[in-house]
Design a protein around this nucleic acid. Sequence first.
RNA 1: GGAGAAAUGGCAGAGUGGUCGAAUGCGGCAGUCUUGAAAACUGUUGAGGGUCACACCUCCGGGGGUUCGAAUCCCUCUUUCUCCGCCA
Length: 423
Amino acid sequence: MLQVQFIRDHKEEVIQKLAKRNLEVSGQIEQVLQLDEERRATQTTLDAILAESNKLSKEIGMLFKSGKAQEANEIKKKTAGLKEESKELTEKLNSVAAQLTELLYTLPNIPHDSVPEGNSDEDNEVIFEEGEVPSLQDGALPHWELAKKYDIIDFDLGAKITGAGFPVYKGKGARLQRALIAYFLDKNTEAGYTEYQVPHLVNEASGIGTGSLPDKEGQMYYIGQDDLYLIPTAEVPVTNFYRDELLNEGDLPLLATAYTPCFRREAGSYGAHVRGLNRLHQFDKVEIVRIEHPERSYEALEGMVDHIKGILRELKLPYRILRLCGGDLTFSSALTYDFEVYSTAQERWLEISSVSNFETFQANRMKLRFRDAQGKKSLAHTLNGSSLALPRVLAGILENYQTSEGIVVPEVLRPYTGFDIIS
RNA sequence: GGAGAAAUGGCAGAGUGGUCGAAUGCGGCAGUCUUGAAAACUGUUGAGGGUCACACCUCCGGGGGUUCGAAUCCCUCUUUCUCCGCCA
């Protein structure tokens, strides 16, 4: 959520920078400023009435104490009108404040200056590419064929017990999943991230904190009976550890990592591109989250990018890094780098990680602040990234490591799998 | 699931209708003393809104109510603890 104070002080800048997202928000900004003005005016009037009412109440108290009940009752009569007025104003204030918040919820984060112009994923900027695309033999298979051939993922069984998009991993496939999770968590903890295991259901406040709610896209699974949401990513529970916290500057940065399953309804996305592991309703992901000092958050973002690069290098997967353009940037993010692995058999790039700096956008929603040495309080910056999303990494491994003998396990994973080939 | 108790500032803990944003202790910060440190002593120390700055307003788990006035009374929700039951 953008800060009202910032919008007040930088109105034109906000309008101009949100244009990068191909949004024309001048009408909404005007409305925000108007509601804010109204909110403050109402508050001021209400405060004056409450002050008067407090004063009278104190007088009444003193009069009763000194036995002057009659005088007290006289003053009591005067309070009735004030009470009525304050009630009306409070209602108005609540209504205006609610409208303001609702409107602010509709405004996405301001893109960083380095975010390229553009409308869709086609305008994303490739900033880095590394790794060799293996030349596969004739008859190279896409991962869903390989999964069937080696009996390591059963999509039909998942569809039977739950539905489409809920695969069952089996045998060496299941073991490989476990290996990847352990490997990623180890890499993250080595880099200083504290490992957590977190709930897979969150309450509404947490969803709002990270910007997942209000969920206009209907992406989250909702458990109505208990008013809880299945997490779409570990980002939601982990970042919300720090909701409503006032940290000390010395506590920063805070680094956390967690493995969780992720649940996404993916309403409306069907077709060839969602085959196999490409898009699922439930998938596994290891996430990294950082709470940073605003002055160091972009340095931290680059650090996260380097960290993920290191993992992909070790896995020896061909990958590239994109800087997302304004049109493709997610709602809460100021700057996002996407990592994509080249899926040789499908001959396409698969997104396996998204690393973002949200600056104060989430922190403002969740009131995550820190106090500096001078005692000044500021919103912290929140960042997160996948390190990594499993299904597409698995797809990349299956397709790129396939040989006539079977699927070779990347070397760094062998201590975790206990086998070096799936045949 | 049933019965009971509780939720107050960074922490501990008082406050059961009136000048309480809240005693006291610990902790933190500043100072005095000291070569330095400790101890002792003195002062200071919650958050949000609002203001140029004050004033002023709001906040004692969340929401609602009673009252001229609520941390304090009532309703409700959440969480924690104790006991019983069930259970991986």
